[in-house]
Simulated assay, not measured.
Amino acid sequence: MDVIQIPHDTNRLVLHFDTALLQINAYALASSLVGLANAIKEANSIVNPGYAVEVVVERLEDGSFRATLKAVVKKAGNIFSHELSKAIIYGIIATWIYDQTLGADKEPIIIINDESVEIRSGERIIIVPREVYDAKKEVERSERFQSSMSQVFNGALKDPAVTGLKITPPGEWPGLPSVPREQFVLIASRYEADDANAIYEDAVLEISRAIMSRGRRKWEFYWRGVKISAPVLDHAFYEAFSAHDITIAPGDMLRVVLKIYRKTDPESGIHVNTKYEVVEVQNHIPREVQGSFETSA
């Protein structure tokens, strides 16, 4: 029986593309890397509130084609946490992938212990730290996480030479199986959102009207000289506000990840923005320090 142990602490992930070639389609690589980076950022915002994460590609390797990514976690400016950040993002992503693939034919057996969770399917047992499993259940409720992971597999589909894909910690992990290509579409389509043309963009928004109750009521902002309306969906931001770690006033700015929904004009082929959502608040910039912010940008 194969026993796979998911590690608890690591801040590096290796994305493996199974291919016989020493090259990979650039669009496949870029799309999968962007999807994985967005999934890491979303998972981090949920399990490490008050900490921002930068995802960098450290190196590319042959063999199966591999990209090593490092998540650099640091306190997020004016929004802060009193707790240390947890290096459990790899475990969350790996456990999510196993959940998707192990349950394809038959519902796996879940055994919950005090310190770990066993996921049993056929001749395979996945042992996951309890903290990682509980965090995974919280993260997988995020639409952004689901659609970002979907993009990882959608991207791999762009290269017909890729026969499998897996995400491991650094080093050699011969027991960790790849997801076969025939399951790429299944995973990708399962979480394919209606907003297929939506994009995520780092943005600095000036607050015109704030809504300090949780929900989907829309704030008003100025962005690039244009007034837009968008709900703020970052739970950590509201928790920081409730704890009086930050105060909000008109004219303050927020550095955010902005989700932009688009549709294509059938005549011109031009993408038109239809609505906006603030999915992550990375920094709060009070009005009185805006001058120094703009000088250093």
Results as ranks from 00 to 15, higher is better:
D2L: 07
I4F: 01
Q5W: 04
P7T: 07
H8C: 02
D9T: 12
L15V: 13
D18W: 00
L21G: 03
L21K: 08
L22F: 08
L22C: 07
Q23C: 04
Y27K: 08
A28H: 03
L33P: 07
V34A: 05
G35E: 13
A37R: 11
K41F: 00
N44P: 08
I46D: 11
P49Q: 10
G50Y: 09
A52C: 04
E54Q: 15
V55C: 03
V57M: 15
E58R: 14
E61L: 04
D62A: 11
F65S: 05
F65V: 10
F65Q: 01
R66D: 06
L69Q: 10
K70T: 10
K70P: 00
A71P: 00
V72A: 06
K74A: 12
F80T: 15
F80A: 12
S81F: 08
S81K: 05
S81E: 10
H82V: 14
L84G: 01
L84A: 04
S85Y: 12
I89L: 14
I89Y: 09
Y90V: 06
I92G: 04
I93R: 11
I93K: 13
T95M: 08
W96Q: 10
I97D: 02
I97E: 02
Y98C: 08
D99N: 09
T101F: 00
I109D: 10
I110S: 05
I111T: 07
N113L: 10
E118I: 02
R120K: 10
E123C: 00
E123T: 08
R124H: 06
V128Q: 03
R130F: 05
V132I: 12
Y133L: 04
Y133W: 11
K136L: 09
K136M: 13
E138P: 02
E140Q: 05
R141Q: 15
R141F: 06
R144W: 04
R144Y: 09
F145M: 00
S148W: 07
S148I: 11
S148M: 10
S150Y: 03
Q151P: 02
F153A: 10
N154I: 05
G155K: 07
G155E: 08
L157W: 00
T163H: 06
L165D: 15
K166H: 13
P169E: 01
P170T: 12
P170R: 05
E172T: 10
W173K: 03
P174F: 00
G175A: 09
L176K: 03
L176M: 12
V179N: 11
E182N: 05
E182P: 03
Q183L: 15
F184E: 12
L186N: 10
I187E: 03
A188H: 09
D194E: 11
A198V: 11
E201W: 01
L205Q: 02
L205D: 01
E206F: 00
E206T: 11
S208Q: 08
S213H: 15
S213D: 14
R216F: 06
W219C: 07
W223G: 03
R224W: 00
A230W: 05
L233D: 06
D234C: 05
A236G: 15
A236M: 07
F237S: 08
A240C: 13
A243E: 14
I246Q: 02
D252T: 01
V256D: 12
L258S: 05
L258V: 10
I260L: 03
I260P: 04
S268K: 09
S268Y: 02
S268I: 04
I270V: 13
H271P: 04
E280L: 04
P286N: 14
E288H: 13
E288Q: 13
Q290R: 09
G291R: 12
S292K: 12
E294A: 01
E294M: 06
A297I: 13
